[in-house]
Design a protein around this nucleic acid. Sequence first.
DNA 1: CATGAATGAGCTTTCATTCAT
DNA 2: TATGAATGAAAGCTCATTCAT
Lengths: 192, 192, 192, 192
Amino acid sequence: MAIRQKCDKKRIDLLKATLHLVNNNGFHDAPMSKMAKIAEVSPATIYIYFENKQDLINQLYLEMKTLFSSFAFKNYHEEQCVKESFRQIWFNIANFKLNQVEESNFLSQCDNTPMIDEEIKREGLKHLQPLLNLWERGKQEGVIKQISPYLLYAFTIYPLAFLTNKQFKNSCELNQEKIDDAFNVAWDSIKV
Amino acid sequence: MAIRQKCDKKRIDLLKATLHLVNNNGFHDAPMSKMAKIAEVSPATIYIYFENKQDLINQLYLEMKTLFSSFAFKNYHEEQCVKESFRQIWFNIANFKLNQVEESNFLSQCDNTPMIDEEIKREGLKHLQPLLNLWERGKQEGVIKQISPYLLYAFTIYPLAFLTNKQFKNSCELNQEKIDDAFNVAWDSIKV
Amino acid sequence: MAIRQKCDKKRIDLLKATLHLVNNNGFHDAPMSKMAKIAEVSPATIYIYFENKQDLINQLYLEMKTLFSSFAFKNYHEEQCVKESFRQIWFNIANFKLNQVEESNFLSQCDNTPMIDEEIKREGLKHLQPLLNLWERGKQEGVIKQISPYLLYAFTIYPLAFLTNKQFKNSCELNQEKIDDAFNVAWDSIKV
Amino acid sequence: MAIRQKCDKKRIDLLKATLHLVNNNGFHDAPMSKMAKIAEVSPATIYIYFENKQDLINQLYLEMKTLFSSFAFKNYHEEQCVKESFRQIWFNIANFKLNQVEESNFLSQCDNTPMIDEEIKREGLKHLQPLLNLWERGKQEGVIKQISPYLLYAFTIYPLAFLTNKQFKNSCELNQEKIDDAFNVAWDSIKV
DNA sequence: CATGAATGAGCTTTCATTCAT
DNA sequence: TATGAATGAAAGCTCATTCAT
């Protein structure tokens, strides 16, 4: 057990180092040697925990997706009404983007780049299922527009990625008021 | 004393090759040698037209931004009412994303990645000014919510990037009906 | 936990290969790939032992300077009279030039070329200090002319470089008699 | 005639540019493109005046050797006594080294480097013939030691290269007094 | 004669990965 | 398991030279 923990530490340090490097330098300037140095292991050690660089990136992606959904559906219970449920999830995701900046930026980078294998990306999509279910319910209850869930996502959740994009963070500080505004905009866009 | 002239064709072929490669393989797997091969020039020729790889990418980014805005504000005249003006621009951008897929994907990749120099990115932002002006007018006329232009952009324009994202294109074919839906969603989100 | 150790043999082989190549082809025609081939290592291995090509050359220079001084002051003891001390050192250096041909030619090449960083060259100068001290003593004892040590060096030691220059070696075979002649010439030039 | 002169100007500018670059950067960092830029001609133009880079360097070497001997034997008339003749030539060469620094350094670099073809180097040696003749006369007259001309050269002329070496110029300013000292040292070394 | 564009070959250096311990 | 050394392949880039005008 002690050994297992020790090992996991290295794995996690490596994932962290990768996250950090890819975010700051981009995938194209994130060599294994630097990852090893930051994680304070030997380059050879990486290959004990990961098959190769692509596998390391893929695993990091999946872990970040899992982390994302663990945030997204915190305190979410299906008993609440649709709007309140949606509000809960929306703010959860907003907080994830605001507080887990590196993790969130990494996911944005992955989603707009061919750096993750398509198959892995498809796997990562599953994490959104509860939200899709909620929207289905909303449509049945007549409180949400009868449109594709892709549209619903595009106009309510996806915009959060823009608001937390590094480039605009300086020009547009996101305070609580703006976030409340944003939620209203999001809800107005899909409510019936 | 007549000499061979630096022909723009080569420059354009190189930019096209770069666009193609970066889109399909990512920046990290887009070596100069492949670009040269696709553009049918010698690797050394690239350095006649561009200082180095970063300069090539930067220039491509700026050209794509210029192309983008030439699409975005096609047939846009400030005399129309705010909603019609916005509709014009919104559909222009949607069509750009739908028809200029490679150009559009490349821009998405750049915006979510540290592959473009920050200074160049800032330069690329200028292209949106007419839209920002329109929104200002809309707010003064009381037809658009009194919120930051970043929010307006995030919830109306930015979602288009999601809808045209390679990954979802297969699952969610964007027909004319869906696009009309999308515009309504966008407008609902920011109209007063 | 035992690992392969950075072995000095490779480092030395690389320095030897560099010495050989630079001497025969010149710095301008001594590519890293050839050095690697001669030293029987991979080109990448060079960069484990040296920062870059300039560092490799610089280190070689310093090693050759150290070797030089280890020859120059062999069997030199300050108790002897000035002339005998000088004779000892002079013949040591002459023998170095005659027997360590490659090492000696390399140093000549470095001293007449901007291929070594100035700072490193300055460092290499320190090795002559014992000779400078001897000359100082000679001046105090009144057996050596009261002139700058640079002149003393220029007219006694530096000429040895000419006598061992590749170009003249064929025309002027340096036998023991000639060397004895040369010493007398050298001594005559600086003795009072 | 006018055209011919114009052409010669380019040839001379190219030789000057080469001299300058090789002296400051070394042969290994003296690309044809830079030479062309400094000489304000096109790279292609170089190949009108010179066969290739090696030919350019070779020709420069020979021109510098010719220049050297035109200095060395200025005002030299065989009627004077040996010592005065030698003094004349020695000071001529000293002045060449002191005043034609770039030309002189270039020759030093060539003589200690494999950058000039051996055959060309041999050709360059001829320029010293008058001095060799003088020494022969000196030996016959019994005023100069009966030793190889290589030794005579090594201990009287060659030292001048050291005294004008870039590296030592700062530490040992060569004023008129030092030069007079140096001549005496030189003469003492070979006089009977 | 003169040129700027163009290039294939080759340069230094880096990288993902494996080796040997 | 864990490592630093080692590496073949390939990266970005430069160069001497030639091309086309």
